[in-house]
């Protein structure tokens, strides 16, 4: 239970961003749990539990998307935690603009952003999770930052 207590919130946040709707994120979370418990006996020691868990979550999401590609909704699922202070109207507006910009990113770029920024994985960990080179991940992040710049201004 230590794994889910420490890294479950990050996994949930990542899945919400990847799935873009709470219902699919819930399904993927449960399937991730199953895969984690099935995989644990065969793993002698997990050096980076967070990256390990998020990688399983991401790959479960990919499998789920392959099975149900049409269920995807492109409305960004809001984080239920985020209740911004009322005096930060500008911050809320900016966040909405960023969410809209992120929603327009291509799936490959969006996944890199989700794993790196929402999941907190390093560029190397993101590359390993996605089976990409670090160069490709950087290139996608570069594309995302160019798109985000206008939303951030």
């Amino acid at each position: 239970m230590k794994l889910v207590d420490e890294h479950g919130p990050a996994l949930a946040a990542l899945l919400r961003r990847l799935c873009r709707n709470a219902h699919d994120a819930d399904d993927v979370f449960q399937e991730t749990a199953l895969r984690v418990w099935r995989a644990l006996p065969g793993v002698p020691r997990v050096h980076n539990p967070r990256a390990w868990l998020l990688t399983i979550g991401y790959r479960t999401f990919l499998d789920s998307r392959q099975r149900r590609p049409s269920h995807e909704s492109f409305a960004e699922s809001p984080d239920p935690r985020v209740v911004a202070p009322s005096d930060q109207v500008l911050h809320i507006e900016m966040r909405e603009r960023v969410q809209q910009a992120v929603a327009k990113l291509t799936p490959g770029v969006h996944e890199v952003v989700a794993l790196h920024y929402a999941g907190g994985l390093t560029i190397r960990e993101t590359a390993e999770a996605m089976n990409l080179t670090e160069g490709t991940v950087k290139s996608r992040l570069h594309a995302a930052l160019v798109e985000l710049r206008s939303a951030l201004e």
Binding site: V4, P9, A13, F29, R81
Partner: peptide, 19 residues
């Protein structure tokens, strides 16, 4: 924005129960 993304809500109780 990065701070927003990196701050995670507690795990919903239903999700933890499922786990």
């Amino acid at each position: 924005t990065k701070q927003d993304w990196a701050t995670h809500a507690p795990l919903p109780s239903a999700w933890r129960t499922a786990w």
